[in-house]
Simulated scan of single mutants.
Amino acid sequence: MAETVVSLEFDLVRALRALANPMRLQLLSWLREPERHFSPEGAIADPVEVGVCVSHIQAKAGLAQSTVSAYMAELQRAGLVQATRVGKWTHYKRDEQRIAQLVAVLGQTL
């Protein structure tokens, strides 16, 4: 049990680091309601079920594709999003269960 708590606390630190960047925080916020923030036009997968294509995230953010990919990879390493490949495209969606766990740990830690 103590090992699990240490792991969750480490994950919390990693998540907080990822969220310390305003754009990564914005990206995570947009993914909370993908149907509201991303046009369904041109989508090859359901943004709620599968996630939003990185090219759509990049277009909305107005950043280079490499920058968006790096930001999304950081959010994924922090356990805040899940990536799914659809053909040659990577789609991202929030990991709501993991986010809830991290929020709970944050509440217990502070």
Rank of each mutant, 00 (worst) to 15 (best):
R32F: 07
S39L: 04
R85A: 15
R14V: 15
R24E: 06
Q26C: 04
S39P: 00
D46I: 06
L12A: 04
R36N: 08
L75F: 01
V5Q: 12
A43I: 01
M72D: 07
V50L: 04
Y71D: 14
E35Q: 14
Y92L: 01
R94P: 04
A15I: 01
A70Q: 09
K93G: 00
G62M: 02
A61D: 08
R85C: 04
V86S: 03
E33C: 01
R77V: 09
V13Q: 11
R98Q: 15
Y71P: 02
W89N: 13
A70V: 05
V103M: 11
A2V: 12
R94H: 04
V48A: 07
S66H: 09
A73I: 03
L12K: 05
M72S: 05
A15D: 05
E9W: 09
R32Y: 05
E41L: 10
A61K: 01
V52S: 04
A64P: 02
W89K: 14
N21G: 09
V54C: 02
L110D: 06
L28E: 05
E41Q: 12
S66W: 08
V86L: 08
L12P: 03
Q108Y: 10
V48D: 08
V105H: 02
L16Y: 06
N21F: 11
R24N: 10
G42V: 04
R14C: 07
L16H: 03
S7K: 15
A104S: 07
P34E: 11
T90G: 02
M1L: 05
G51T: 05
A64S: 12
R36P: 00
K60Y: 03
R85T: 11
V105W: 03
D95N: 15
R24S: 06
R94V: 12
Y92S: 00
V5S: 11
A20L: 07
A83E: 15
L19Q: 05
N21V: 11
C53Q: 13
